[in-house]
Every structure is written in structure tokens, then in C-alpha cells.
Amino acid sequence: MRTTDSMTNILAITKREFFGYFGSAVAYVFIVIFLMLLGFFTFYISNFFEMGQADLQGFFQWHPWIFLFLIPAVAMRLWAEERRMGTIELILTFPITVWEAILGKFLAAWAFIGIALALTFPLVITAAYLGNPDLGAIFCSYVGSFLMAGAFLSVGIMTSSFTRSQVVSFIIAIVICLFFILAGFPPVIKALSGWSPAWLVDLVSYLSFLTHFMSIERGVLDLRDIVYYVSVIAFMLFINGVVIQNRRTA
């Protein structure tokens, strides 16, 4: 009984947030920019056609960097807007728990990003038409990209709960996400391994979104990578809940 109640509460929040994206221009602007940027990087920077290879490596490698800027923009309104408008007072006095509200919001934004990601399908068709790509690896990369998007999003929704200003939330989210990317960025790893012990290098790179994404991208959906992303998401959402429950005012 209690769990079905929870499910319906989460679903109600998710529905509202999800259609909220499409109710305003945000959704369309986001999707257009997302697709244009990805297209630009894939075709002009990675030279998708000239590579002569029917894989999507040159496509997926840009995802972390585009997510870095776009996902905090999707997430920034989730709590900050509620706080600014005072509607947080309604949502937190409804007969639902903080966790249901957080999960509902998170799932809505995640589903939205999932749709944007799914809209990149013409590229898969192109690759399949031109050559013989490893569809299994492409599928894995999509799953990895989606999981990574969830991790970015969980950071964004957490920073959104800190403040009533969307801009502040956006900037803090970018800084935190940048850290999570750079920790696994090869130049950083190289610089680090010059002077620090191997275990520290491993630890830092293990913390990175990038390391795990690259490992999934190779076509292996390792349970450890999935566990990593799920725990990052759970941790960020937990902080979000603590912040919301301990705020002093609206």
C-alpha cells in the first residue's frame, strides 16, 4: 500500500515537471542546442565522415563536455524556482515525503534528457548505412551516456536546492561537474601521476565520470561502472534531501 502510494506520488510530480519542460520554450531550446552542438562536434571537430570508420566514438566522446554545460541548465530550475516562487511551501506541505518529491523531479529531468539523447538516432542510422558498426557497443555507449547524464543531473538538482537563484545553481553545478570530469581527463591524470602515489591517481580517476564512461564506451557494460553512477546519483539526491529538510525558510 505504502509503496504504491509512493509510486503514484512520484509519478504525479514527475508528470508535472516533465510537461513543465515542454510547457515553456526551455525544452525545445535545449533539444535544438543539444543536437546542434553534438552535430557540430561530431562532424566538424571529429570529422565523422573523413575518419572512414563506422563507429560513433567521435560522437560519444563529446557527451561529457556538452552535458557539462547543458545539464546544469536543465536541472537549475528544479528547486531554485520552487524556492523563488514560494511554491516549495506547497510541495513540502502536501502529503508526500521529501524523497518522493526529489525522485519525481529527478526522474522527470532524466526522462527529458533521455528523449534528447534518443533524438540523436539518425546518427546511428547513418553509421549503419555507411558501414557495419558494432551495434552492441553503440547501445552500451547510449546506456553509459544516459547513466552519466543522470550523474550530472543529480549534481545539478542538488545545487539547485542550495539557492533560490537559478544562475548560482547553474554555476556551482558546472564547477562540481567539471571536477568530476577533469579527475579522469588524461592530461590531468598524467600531471598527477608525475608526483603522487599510484593509489591516489587511481582513486582520483576512479571518482571521475569520464573514466567510467570511457570504460562503458568500449562496449562492456561492467556492473562496477553502473554501481558507480547509481551511487553518485544516490549520494547527490541524499544531500539534496538533507538540504531541503534543513532549510530554515523558503
Partner: peptide, 30 residues
Amino acid sequence: RRKIGYLPENAPVYPDMTVFDYLAFCAEIR
């Protein structure tokens, strides 16, 4: 909280929803 109806100060509402959708959302939560 199920037994309470609450009108907060300054009557916050979601500005980009229609009146019907907003109330339908509240009804669903309830």
C-alpha cells in the same frame, strides 16, 4: 498533512500551468 488544507502567504502557484492542470496536479497528489 492529509487532513490539512493550506494557503501559504502570498498564495504561491505554478505560473506556467493552466488553472485546470494545476488543480488536477494537486488532486493527484491528494
